[in-house]
């Protein structure tokens, strides 16, 4: 372990001595960061959703979705129908909720009133909504589930539970991109 650290340190020192190499490797790092950002923003544009990929945090949709599953969302304008799984946000609550739409009442002007419920919950979500709120509206919906991928979200959950781990990992990865000579 110590030797690895020493090796990395000597690499860094070498980089520091040759600005051209440092610049090239920094650009390399920036490229990786910005491509990730571009992909995310591109997905946001295509799906019209402000968070195209979400991780399921609770068991309220079991057995369909478990904690740690990844959901891909879209937020297209076509009307929401009953049975769809949506991600919605309640005023004054930080964490969005993934539940299924059980009631749709559509007005003449296109406005909708929605009622949701978790597959694994016994009753509808009215108790979760803001005080006095009877229905969800279209603007409360952040996205509609289109696809799923299992387990991968556990990575995010672990990183969020242990923030130090996140910084250490990101730091190490950044360092290795900087000192990497293979590419």
């Amino acid at each position: 372990m110590e030797e690895i650290v020493q090796g990395q340190l000597s690499e860094l020192k070498k980089l520091w001595r040759s600005p051209r190499m440092l610049l090239s490797q920094s650009l390399n790092l920036a490229m990786i960061v910005f491509s990730a950002l571009m992909i995310w923003k591109g997905l946001m544009f295509l799906t019209k959703s402000e968070s195209p990929v979400v991780v399921v945090l609770s068991g309220s949709m079991e057995p369909a979705f478990q904690r740690g599953d990844i959901l891909f969302l879209n937020n297209q304008d076509d009307p929401i129908r009953v049975g769809e799984i949506v991600v919605f946000k309640i005023k004054d609550r930080d964490i969005p909720i993934v539940h299924r739409v059980l009631e749709v009442h559509q007005k003449e002007d296109g406005k909708v009133e929605l009622l949701t419920k978790g597959d694994n919950n016994r009753v509808g979500d009215r108790g979760l909504y803001a005080p006095g709120q009877l229905w969800l509206n279209r603007e409360d919906i952040l996205g509609r589930a289109a696809g799923t991928l299992r387990y991968l979200g556990m990575v995010t959950i672990i990183l969020n539970d242990y923030p130090m781990l996140k910084y250490v990992l990101v730091g190490i990865m950044g360092l290795f991109v900087l000192t990497n000579k293979e590419s």
Binding site: R81, V82, L102, E103, V104, H105, Q106, K107
Partner: peptide, 8 residues
């Protein structure tokens, strides 16, 4: 009131 109501 509603052009379409769907209730599960």
């Amino acid at each position: 009131k509603n052009v379409l109501s769907q209730v599960v």
